[in-house]
Simulated scan of single mutants.
Amino acid sequence: MVYSDQKLACRLERTEARANAACVDARARLFPGSRAQWLEVAGAYAMFDGPESPLTQTFGLGLFEEVTPHHLDKLEAFFKEQNAPVFHEVSPMADSSLLSLLNERKYQPLELTSVLYRELTQDFEIQVSRTPRLKARLIKAEETTLWAHTLTRGWSTEVPGLSDFMLEFGQITASSAGAFPFIAELAGEPIAAGGLFIYDGVALLAGASTAPEGRRQGAQMALLNARLQYAAEQGCTIAMMGASPGSQSQRNAEKNGFRIAYTRIKWQLRSGS
């Protein structure tokens, strides 16, 4: 039995940090002029992937080492040098002294995320799809662009105006070290895509979306099962994902054996601080 404690939080946060750092490395490789980069401070990973990128923030702050004003000085300077906002996504398992320090430096809470997990075994049993013509699989090396386009078709209806960003971001994600992109096809036509990243026995499920014409066909369930089965076959013992508290994504995860490890808070340094 794996319990939600600081040890688990360190594994989960490090996995997500490594996944995002791999994306930053991929962007720096594919787009040398992007200035994409990351560094480690007090055990936390701080990433710059562009001023508007959701990856531009820190993960794991306060979990691996007690944070001092000097550490925050270094992190804030890193983001400000890139003209980027300063964000820290903080687990409640972090050292309690961090909350006082963030308040003293005029940070404000901005967003909540439920971090969910479930245990995996190699005999993980997949659920049978209700749509026989629906199949989910790991993409081939030459299908990176197809995967990115499929992902973008789903997200573009959820967040209008982000098509160009999501297409580029999808190609970068699929090209990242440790990434295993999956696609769901209905009668051979791609209708949904989802990401998988594996690090140190932990499988991170991320980025799943379904194109409008493919919804209500069970594509998300097929992607979930395929990714979990693959992760179990690779020796992963834990799967994780993030969701907005109380969202449909969280409910779907809980229906499939996930439970909440903790709820993170994203903190933002106030303008002018």
Rank of each mutant, 00 (worst) to 15 (best):
G170C: 11
G161S: 12
R270Y: 04
Q127A: 09
I139S: 04
T68G: 02
L146W: 08
P245G: 05
G43Q: 15
E89G: 00
D123K: 00
L101I: 02
I260C: 15
T121K: 03
L39N: 04
A208D: 13
D164Y: 00
G62S: 08
G246T: 02
A184E: 06
T56Q: 10
A77F: 09
G201F: 00
R27K: 13
G207W: 09
A77H: 13
A193G: 12
A222Y: 10
A174V: 14
S34G: 00
W38F: 14
A9K: 06
P92N: 07
T113S: 12
L30C: 10
L102Q: 05
T15W: 02
R264I: 12
F64W: 02
F87L: 05
E16P: 04
F180H: 14
R118K: 04
F48V: 09
A226E: 05
A19L: 08
G218I: 03
P69C: 01
S129P: 13
T131L: 12
H71D: 11
A193Y: 08
L112T: 06
A17K: 05
G161K: 07
S91D: 11
R264N: 14
T58D: 01
N103T: 00
T263W: 05
Q234S: 08
Q57V: 02
Y230L: 10
H88D: 01
M241T: 14
A177C: 15
G161Q: 03
S53M: 05
G33R: 04
T68R: 06
I265V: 04
E185R: 15
T263K: 06
K7I: 10
L134R: 12
F180Y: 13
W267K: 02
L223E: 01
L138Y: 09
L116E: 01
G214Q: 02
T210K: 02
D49G: 02
E142T: 06
D49P: 07
A174H: 15
F79T: 08
L72I: 08
V2G: 03
L98A: 07
D200R: 08
W147I: 15
Y230N: 04
E13Y: 14
R11V: 14
G272C: 02
F79D: 08
Q220A: 06
Q250I: 07
T145A: 15
A44C: 01
G43I: 14
E125S: 08
L269N: 08
Y262W: 14
A184P: 13
S175C: 14
C10S: 11
R29M: 11
I260E: 13
A177I: 15
Y262I: 07
F79G: 03
F124Y: 15
A206C: 06
A22P: 00
G154M: 07
E104F: 07
Y3C: 10
I260Y: 09
D200E: 15
A261R: 02
T56Y: 10
A253K: 03
A46H: 13
M241K: 12
T150A: 12
T113V: 11
L120M: 00
E143F: 10
N83F: 03
A84S: 15
